[in-house]
């Protein structure tokens, strides 16, 4: 890729949730799910987002499709803000960005047949007119994801997990979106089925020049599908790098720890483990300093008081938020 066109731009995105206090009548606390996220997504790329549970990766995905209203910041799709637009324009926006959810069991209406589920977005967006044309289009979509005509009138409970996820994919691509947010699309599937769905997603990407944001907690899956990878920790981006670099040259201490925690690929492999002490701190309430400060083996005095910013480091496109690399 010579000229990378930015399709979606995220500027200073923050999302807070108000949560109830522990005691009756006590003040409400604020949970900072996302803090000051800056991100450019290029056209036709797969952007992997990885992090532990509670780090805000799903919230980020939901903000991008407009399921959450961000507290602060802007999201620009091809230069136009997708926030605060009129209802009519919003429909247009939704057409461009679609989402595939994690749980294939709960993301399909149990009372809709496969054909109903897949055709619903096309009915809402009025892209296909007439019953015969709709049926034709649904069949075409089903064939594209590896299902067939006999599956059209079945209900979700008659499908296996992998087939259901295929239906979700068919539904997402039904209105020709430019971008698909995949929120843990393969986490609920078995390895052999997982490989089938990953291959399907890759095939469709090539066919339609789709842009994916691929959210997962499984580093090997993310590494496999992504061109660039975003590593998140406690609502912040700690590192952005190209797909290959994460394995060869991880910079942030958190990324290094994450890599060392992955089970080995063969029984002879001896891994040097970087163990992070303790657990992920709670995102509730205010904090200052680097989010990893309490667990980082290389924590400095400065980390406890200041928040490191994402800075370019080394190769092009490799950004890291850590003071360790700022001195030089």
């Amino acid at each position: 890729m010579s000229e990378k066109r930015v399709i979606l731009q995220v500027k200073g995105l923050s999302k807070d949730f108000q949560i109830k206090g522990k005691k009756l009548g006590s003040k409400k606390a604020v949970l900072h799910a996302l803090q000051e996220i800056d991100l450019d997504i290029h056209e036709g790329e797969v952007l992997g987002v990885i992090g532990e549970s509670g780090c805000g990766k799903s919230t980020l995905g939901r903000c991008l499709v407009g399921l959450h209203k961000p507290t602060e910041g802007e999201i620009l799709f091809e230069g136009k803000s997708i926030l605060g637009v009129r209802a009519k324009d919003k429909l247009e926006m939704c057409r461009n960005i679609q989402m595939i959810f994690q749980d294939p069991y709960s993301s399909l209406d149990p009372r809709h047949t496969a054909a109903d589920s897949v055709s619903e977005p096309m009915v809402v967006h009025k892209t296909v007119k007439g019953r015969a044309a709709m049926e034709q289009r649904v069949l075409e979509l089903l064939k594209q994801v590896g299902l067939d005509v006999q599956h059209m009138n079945r209900y979700p409970h008659e499908f296996s997990g992998g087939q259901r996820q295929r239906l979700n994919v068919a539904r997402a691509i039904s209105i020709n979106p430019r971008m698909i947010i995949c929120d843990e699309p393969v986490s609920a599937l078995d390895v052999s089925i997982q490989a089938q769905v990953i291959n399907l997603l890759k095939k469709l990407q090539k066919e339609y020049n789709l842009t994916y944001v691929f959210i997962s907690h499984d580093l090997s899956v993310v590494k496999y599908v992504s061109d660039r990878i975003v590593i998140m920790y406690l609502g912040r981006i700690v590192e952005i790098c190209n797909g290959g670099d994460i394995y060869k040259n991880p910079l942030h201490p958190y990324t290094q720890a994450l890599l060392s925690a992955i089970p080995p690929e063969c029984p002879d492999e001896e891994k040097e483990r970087i163990v992070l002490q303790g657990e992920v701190p709670s995102p509730i309430g205010e904090r200052k300093g680097c989010p990893l400060a309490g667990r980082c083996p290389q924590c400095m005095e400065r980390c406890k008081n200041e928040m490191p910013r994402l800075k370019q480091q080394g190769e092009e496109g490799h950004q890291v938020a850590c003071f360790l690399y700022e001195k030089k």
């Binding site: 087939q163 052999s192 090997s220």
Partner: peptide, 24 residues
């Protein structure tokens, strides 16, 4: 074999297609 091949590996090249076990 199918099980081993269908696991994405950290060290493998992401360009090639993942091997799968067809069917259910």
């Amino acid at each position: 074999w199918g099980l081993l091949d269908s696991m994405p590996k950290l060290s493998s090249n992401s360009g090639e297609e993942l091997a799968t076990i067809q069917g259910t």
